[in-house]
Design a protein around this nucleic acid. Structure first.
Lengths: 152, 152
DNA sequence: TCTATTTATATCGTTTGCGATACAAAAGTA
DNA sequence: TACTTTTGTATCGCAAACGATATAAATAGA
């Protein structure tokens, strides 16, 4: 059996598993406030800059609008944000945080620390994290470029 | 705004994005044969060792049986594998590859190389991949341990 | 100006992923 | 043996993801 075919040699399986398990680590901290991890990502984007069109949020998260639109609708139902027609461009839908959406930033202030401490281990420390971030960023940039090229 | 809250400082978002984009890189190669990435993972498990109970496949992929069961049913419908009652333990369902499932190993033999070459970049090379694997494996092991402890 | 194309969102259908729960077979216990 | 607990799978419901497609508004071109 070819070595390349072994699960243990697959980068994608590691990323897939690490991503799932780390997302699960967020779950108890977020579900306490009725949130999912992708919803938490949307909140982080809007905390950085409020009142963004759907497209900007999708681009920031590198997701498609057909993923983000239903997600935003669910968050609107929860009263976390408001979706309103853009005034300059009537096609756009501008997403704005409500009071509840802003308050969540305080309620969730300990989440990054708690999850961060859960992943610290022998080979992943404040010293090595920058190298890990660099590799993941490079992978993401490479794959993103290739996708954009295929679209032309 | 707290630095910890910035999307750019989040490990989980990087893993989540890298995992999604890399899975998308598999898509054209797999859909050609009617497969999805999780189905490809199941195949890799069964190519390593055929005729395994559902539980062993789920454990190997670190997924729950309620995820794996429907996945296996779809693959059975496609004629890739067979689910049969275990003889020793009647609760078990043993999953066995069909001829088609074995043939797929040859049809997909160039997938690892193609996807592998798609992620090679400045900071991710044959020299640095072992370090990356080590860090991801440590993160996975740490999170897996914490989950198992919470269950007791 | 009128039409063609692009852009911003949304809808639809399918597959995952997972928490909660159900259920039957096996194992343990009194 | 009768009863309890554990184990292996499965069902259900919901929230992502995403390919394919639709729709209206804006833009470009003739």
């Amino acid at each position: 059996m070819k070595e390349q075919f072994k699960l243990d040699n697959q980068l994608c399986f590691r990323l897939y598993t690490a991503s799932r398990l780390l997302t699960q680590a967020y779950h108890p901290l977020l579900s306490e406030h009725g949130l999912t991890y992708p919803q938490y990502l949307v909140l982080m984007v809007l905390w950085e800059k409020d009142a963004q069109p759907v497209n900007d949020i999708a681009k920031r998260l590198m997701l498609e609008t057909n993923t983000v639109t239903p997600l935003l609708k669910r968050m609107e139902l929860q009263g976390i944000l408001i979706r309103s027609k853009g005034s300059a461009d009537a096609r756009q839908v501008i997403v704005t945080l409500t009071e509840k959406g802003h308050i969540l930033q305080n309620l969730l202030s300990d989440v990054p620390m708690k999850v961060g401490s859960a992943v610290i281990c022998k080979s992943v420390t404040p010293d090595t994290v920058p190298a890990l971030f660099g590799m993941l960023d490079d992978i993401i940039a490479k794959l993103d470029n290739q996708q954009n090229q295929n679209e032309d």
